[in-house]
Design a protein around this nucleic acid. Sequence first.
RNA 1: GACUGGGUAGCUCAGCUGGAUAGAGCACUCGCCUUCUAAGCGAAUGGUCAAGGGUUCGAAUCCCUUCCCGGUCACCA
Length: 556
Amino acid sequence: MITSKLSELINGALDVEVNVIQSNRPDLCDYQIDAAFKLAKELHKSPFEIANDIVEKINSIENINDIFSKIEVVNGFINLTLTDKFINEMIRLMNDSDKYGILPDNKKVVMDYGGPNIAKPLHVGHLRTAIIGEAIKRILRFKGNEVIADVHLGDFGLQIGEVIYAIQHDGKSDEEITLEYLNEAYPRMSGICKENEDIKHECEDITKRMQDGEPELIRLCDIITEVSLGDIKELYNILDVSFDLWESERSAYVYIPELEKLLNEKGLIHESQGAMVIDVAEESDTKEIPPMIFQKSNKAYLYGTTDMATIYDRENKYHPDYMIYITDDRQSMHFTQVFRASLKAGITDTIFEHKSYGTVNGPDGKPFKTRAGNAPSLRELLNETKDIFVSKKEDNKDMSEEDLNKIVNSIIKFADLQNNMSNDYIFDINKFSNTSGKTGPYMQYTVLRLKKILDSETINNSLTDTIYNETDRNIRLKLLELSSAVDKAYETRMPSYLVDYIYGLANEANNFYQNNHIAGLEDETKKNDWLYILNITVNILTDMLNLIGIEIPSYM
RNA sequence: GACUGGGUAGCUCAGCUGGAUAGAGCACUCGCCUUCUAAGCGAAUGGUCAAGGGUUCGAAUCCCUUCCCGGUCACCA
């Protein structure tokens, strides 16, 4: 907001276009223009000369001294320093505007994240899609978009066929189908199917018959779903991750016949190697994109088909501007195929986005093999993190369960979201035992200590033009960066940009706290100004933390 | 092999649509609690940004080559 405002103002006086950007030398200035170098070649002048020309024109803008206290050229860079008056004017504007003056977008979006496989309890591999997806959803909503979030369960594929095979061959009664059993049976079966072709075929056959609606298999599938779903919902609840829709592979089945008819009418499906496929390769491809398999040679359907049927359904029901998927990067090929097939079939004209994140790796740097079942369960992780936190301080034992949950969530979420989501990350339980430094608890603690000050004071809703010292100025400048951080996170769908800002603001807030005491301050004007600044800081921190799924506990 | 992501401080990672002196946290060392919460603040230490070349006034960032480590490449999700 501020950079575009300043750019606009300055460009009004120039006959070339320049961009005002955040200073990378805060010791020299607040904002800068580095356009002189680029213009030097076009204009056949030295950068220094051009910069001086630009400065001269900026200086001719009416009342420019109200905005910049210093405009100077150093080594060809144009360095801009804001006046205290202007900084405060901007802060007042933020404070008085809806959503701090961040402009809304108003699109309709369907998001698909979570995607738990009901054959098995949630493990750490499910953490990223949930945490990242939830953050993106909240950021989108904050920006005014209408977002419909679908958990989209994996509940009707081969994984279920395998588990049903195990149930039948282990002679398990309905009551014996427990979470613990699923946790053991699924990885076991995955292993067996890799070794034994015959058993694999049998599982595929079970899957096919289940998809066709064989009553006994559907009954078992229902039991597995019920056992698993209770746990999944409870965990998402603890993580404060929520969905508007609990659709699934299975719920997409009813749309397959319509979809298939439509695809046949358009002549898009053809037989290949015994399977029915849709060609999705394009001339511009730099690598081979194999056709999307619509129906397996044994007539069963795969997740590409259910995903496509789901797209068909979503388009009809919601007609979204965007459909955004948050999954592991290893599914890129799958989504390329599904998106292309859907657009080719004309079942939607939405803009597809597959926002993939890097793999969660074990300490050896290699992905947890979920089928081998050695990834730690999510529940264990949450409990372990909680235990570590409780053991940190004597007082922590007395914290409410609710507050503890908020802290555990903040530890896990902040540790994840501060990374660039597209990169892999090494899962390390030690990472979740740290509560100082760049961590969730640091953020929560910051808000709490600021709030403590505000609680005992009355906040006057006015701010003068004065800034009292350096730490005071720094926090105010940081406040002005909010909108560009939110917009960057929004546009890239990368919460880490927002996390970076939140941490930076908290850092400035702690600096301010350390160096400026408000209690007992005799200068009422100064006191009011500072309370105003702390108040907007607390509001922003609280709101932005909320966007990444972190709540503030009552005490810590 | 093709395509794709990565290699930045002892460790975990930011930065990557080119800008001035390379950024955090952890760990290590040293300061700061009779003052609104020390889960805090400050200082110090730590780098040939994998290697080599190129483009540019300027490269961790863009291009090329090489070396390492992941991932994907039709009937799993």
